[in-house]
Amino acid sequence: MSNKIDFYKNLDPYLECKDYTVSGETYQVQINKEYEMLVTTPVPKQLGDYYESEAYISHTDAKKSLLDKVYQVVKKIALKKKLKLINSFNLSDKTVLDIGAGTGDFLKVCQNNTWKVQGVEPNLNARKIALEKGIHLQEHLEQLSNKKFDIITLWHVLEHVEHLQDYIKTLKNLLKENGRIIVAVPNYKSFDANYYTNYWAAFDVPRHLWHFSKTSIIKLFGNEKMTVATILPMKFDAFYVALLSEKYKHGSAKPLTAFFKGLTSNIKAARSGEYSSLIYIIKHN
Rank of each mutant, 00 (worst) to 15 (best):
K4W: 08
K4I: 14
D12S: 15
D12T: 14
P13R: 09
Y14M: 04
L15N: 05
C17L: 03
V22L: 15
E25N: 12
E25K: 15
Y27K: 03
Q28E: 15
I31Q: 10
E34H: 10
Y35Q: 09
L38M: 14
L47E: 11
E52Q: 12
D61R: 13
A62P: 04
L66Q: 13
D68E: 11
D68L: 06
Y71V: 12
V73R: 09
V74P: 04
K76Y: 15
I77E: 13
K80C: 10
K80H: 11
K80I: 14
K81S: 13
K81P: 08
L83N: 03
I86G: 09
S88D: 11
F89A: 08
S92N: 13
D93T: 13
T95C: 06
D98R: 07
G100M: 07
G100N: 04
G102Q: 08
L107W: 06
L107V: 05
L107Y: 04
K108W: 01
N113G: 02
T114L: 07
V117C: 13
P122R: 05
N123P: 00
L124Y: 08
A126T: 11
K128W: 00
I129Q: 04
A130L: 07
K133R: 11
Q138W: 02
E139F: 02
N146Y: 06
N146S: 07
K147E: 03
L154D: 00
H156V: 03
V157T: 06
V157M: 14
H163S: 09
Q165K: 11
Q165C: 00
Q165P: 13
D166C: 09
I168M: 01
K169S: 13
K176D: 06
I181C: 10
I182Y: 03
I182M: 03
I182N: 02
V183D: 07
N187R: 06
N187V: 09
K189T: 09
K189I: 02
N194R: 13
T197N: 10
Y199A: 12
W200Y: 13
D204L: 13
V205N: 02
P206W: 07
H208W: 08
L209P: 00
H211A: 03
F212H: 13
F212Q: 00
K214E: 08
T215Y: 01
I217R: 01
I217Q: 02
I218H: 10
I218A: 07
K219T: 04
F221N: 01
E224D: 12
E224C: 09
M226A: 06
V228G: 01
P233M: 07
K235R: 15
D237C: 00
V241E: 10
V241D: 11
L244E: 12
S245F: 10
Y248Q: 03
G251R: 04
G251A: 06
K254R: 10
L256P: 00
T257D: 12
F259V: 01
F260D: 10
L263H: 07
L263Q: 04
T264G: 00
T264D: 09
I267P: 01
A270H: 12
G273D: 02
Y275R: 12
Y275I: 01
S276R: 05
S276V: 08
L278T: 01
L278D: 01
L278G: 07
H284I: 04
